[in-house]
Design a protein around this nucleic acid. Structure first.
Lengths: 200, 200
DNA sequence: GTCTATACTTTGATAGAC
DNA sequence: GTCTATCAAAGTATAGAC
């Protein structure tokens, strides 16, 4: 929003175009030529800005997209009344986006993670780092809600896994049913855990 | 097991090799040349047995792999004492496989679903059909355990989404933590739902 | 039906003019 | 730094000998 596609630097346009393409076609399905075409950049600029080629570009895009989703989710939690509402809103928001975009885009982290975990170690590490950052961020929210560190981490891992899994299911079947069900149950789990807290 | 790689027909060897490659490299990451090399088959045999080319081969592999996983999961439930144990064993088994194979293979359905949901409609439909078959199969198990149809379907969707999501997370981070946490919470959810049943 | 050779396209990557 | 031309390799697909 701060920078339009027209005024952004070449490097930023390449990063943004790559992130968008990864969401739709994944890592192997996205070609460098399509990236420069979408970014309105000359082909050579990819290797000028990313001497490491497609792999280095992919690693940077994974980290950027990961940070973007982290901010997005945190803002959803900030806007919610409590932690249970935050969890519920995350699933509802994902379903909303899926419907609004006609089920076009997936989570690029998850897609790339599945594609390259066995064949490209730098990219696998990048996806694992993003998952760990998300887990840490969500954990801090659950800690703030009163859970001790191990319980907070477990709930974080549970909610993130549930969100990712339901998202794939929903996008493939072009229905938000999986996200609706997952969100309802995830909220119930967190609510029940909250009730069992010594001091609540 | 019934047919060794040496005695299987050319078509079966192609299907098996493709299924194995999809688990590791996905759909776009798997080349026809690598498929025939792994299957010890001449290149032309792909188009002889699959006139629809790579896409038709992919659709058949998705259905085959989907049916294979369905049988596998059902056998896990058959071997378990009750439905809660079955759920727990599914996650434990997935973690075990991941460790034993050094986190090499992913679920091909999920990988392909993420890669092609926006770019290849026949393949997207195939993955959606597999998800729906899994849901129906798991639903019937939950129904047999005493849940009514809507509740059984919700639990089925929840468990499958949770399993898929945790699997990606675990493989990317090369730890079974996500599957361990997901399995524990999923079993707890089913157990609690079972307790709330009118007649239990 | 089996298998080989090849056509055509696209891929990631590089060299070098400007 | 920007941009173009081109490379070698790999991608899918096809034609046709056997």
């Amino acid at each position: 929003m701060a920078t339009s596609a027209a005024t952004a630097t070449t490097k930023e346009r390449i990063l943004d175009a790559t992130a968008a393409l990864f969401m739709r076609y994944g890592y192997t399905g996205t070609g460098l030529k399509q990236i420069v075409a979408d970014a309105n950049a000359p082909f050579g600029s990819v290797y000028h800005h990313f001497p490491g080629g497609k792999e280095a570009l992919g690693v940077e895009v994974i980290h950027r997209s990961g940070a973007m989703y982290e901010e997005l989710v945190m803002s959803v939690f900030d806007a919610a009344d409590d932690i249970v509402g935050g969890v519920r809103d995350c699933f509802a928001g994902a379903a909303e986006v899926l419907r609004a975009t006609d089920y076009a885009d997936a989570c690029p982290i998850e897609t790339v993670a599945l594609e390259v975990a066995s064949s490209n170690e730098p990219l696998r590490i990048a996806t694992a780092e993003v998952f760990e950052r998300w887990t840490a961020a969500a954990s801090s929210r659950f800690s703030a809600a009163g859970f001790d560190a191990p319980a907070a981490r477990e709930l974080a891992i549970f909610v993130i896994s549930q969100l990712e899994g339901a998202f794939v299911h929903a996008r493939a079947s072009r229905t938000t049913e999986a996200l609706d069900v997952a969100g309802k149950i995830a909220a119930t789990v967190v609510e029940a855990a909250l009730r069992d807290l010594p001091v609540s």
